[in-house]
């Protein structure tokens, strides 16, 4: 992953954190099949509702942002699993048929 692609999101997140926001960063750690964003792709979320970057083609961003809120509250990282075999597939699956794992952490 090249910095100009991935690192900007982290820089954006760091800027938000420095400005006093509560921030979580989600990172794609593994993909299978035709998932649109490669491992290393990042999504940054603030408690106030700001969003930057992406971890999919848009299909799971909402669910990831929701999980990020929990991590912002608890400080505990999470490893999320999305895919067609997931129980929540009907709710937040990947339309493309791919699978991804997403790690969510708080910027402390």
């Amino acid at each position: 992953m090249n910095m100009s692609d991935s690192e900007d999101i982290l820089a954006t997140a760091a800027g938000w954190r420095a400005a006093g926001e509560l921030v979580a960063v989600a990172t794609v750690t593994e993909t299978w099949g035709s998932s649109p964003r490669p491992a290393g792709s990042r999504l940054a979320v603030t408690k106030s509702g700001k969003i930057a970057g992406s971890v999919s083609g848009g299909c799971i961003e909402g669910a990831v942002a929701e999980a990020a809120m929990k991590t912002i509250e608890s400080g505990t990282p999470q490893l999320l699993d999305f895919g067609v075999t997931h129980e929540r597939a009907w709710e937040v699956g990947l339309a493309c048929g791919g699978k991804v794992k997403v790690f969510v952490e708080k910027l402390s």
Partner: peptide, 21 residues
């Protein structure tokens, strides 16, 4: 220049490459 998860022993590590442009 490809980030990914590797298993070393019984531990999974996500290795995120940060190469200069």
């Amino acid at each position: 220049d490809e980030s990914g998860t590797v298993r070393l022993g019984d531990t999974d590590w996500f290795l995120h490459a940060h190469n200069p442009p």
